[in-house]
Design a protein around this nucleic acid. Structure first.
Lengths: 86, 86, 86, 86
DNA sequence: GTTGATCTTATTTCTC
DNA sequence: GAGAAATAAGATCAAC
């Protein structure tokens, strides 16, 4: 059993622990807030008359498209790198 | 079929659509970045010697505790009192 | 493409498929019935004069309490002790 | 404030409350068990080589089909009832 | 009739 | 990469 997992933590270790928990909790809070903002955007769009289901589909497709484009760029990079080595 | 769901969108509607998609995509990007930051904090903690599994449990318990405290602030005294006598 | 995902299924495979679908559908039916029974219990309680919203909260709190108790049975003494000193 | 929501509950009311909570908790437990059984069936099917995503689709479609058939029967009933009144 | 609440499904995320 | 857990979405239903 080492210092960190034992019940005898140094002050520095305890401080580190406190900081770590604090940072995670803050970040999770921020993440939650952003998720709520996304919801609000959809609610607004719905109120405007958009079909949110279709909207979500569009955004999903665009994400897939980006992923595909990135993949293609990666393939291109690989070829270019291979060419560079010739 | 109204303007919004038809294929004949006014310029204003198209602009609104573009903005909506843009806002959602930005927010999702932010959310993703924060999720990555959380991962980094855990990775750092692990490198420091903390047991990340235990760390996650601590954070989870603190969340449950907060939830419980919030629930208990509700006006349920009567029912809880009755339950306490069981 | 293997037998299972191809359009040429053996009799045994088709039978297995039928059984699987059947079992899931039966279980979902049972689940639905129980959900209805829960609804009935709440309806009955409401007819008796209970505040079902409060009732649901009581049950939710009892669930949180159980979850908390289970969490706390975990070996987290060290971290909790450290946190207790904050 | 009536008896049920006041802090002065009769023994009979408390007993009724206890019973209600108990019944709900039991039913929820049963429901949870059935949900787990459904999971197991899917896990088994997957181990057998079935594509569970497709399987879920099939079951969903069958559910929609049943709903449609029932709806059509209802429409038929309505017409028959209307005819009966002539 | 529109918001709010609940319940279920689906997807994503995380861990092992 | 498989399985479990968390989160989010959608659907449904009641209440005001």
């Amino acid at each position: 059993m080492d210092d960190v997992s034992s019940s005898h933590l140094t002050e520095a270790t305890k401080e580190k622990l406190r900081q770590t928990i604090d940072r995670v909790e803050r970040l999770e809070e921020e993440k939650k807030e952003i998720a709520e903002q996304i919801k609000e955007v959809y609610a607004e769009a719905k109120a405007f008359g958009f079909d949110t289901k279709a909207l979500r589909q569009v955004i999903k497709i665009r994400k897939i498209d980006r992923a595909e484009r990135e993949e293609q760029e990666m393939v291109l990079d690989t070829y270019l790198a291979a060419l560079g080595e010739i």
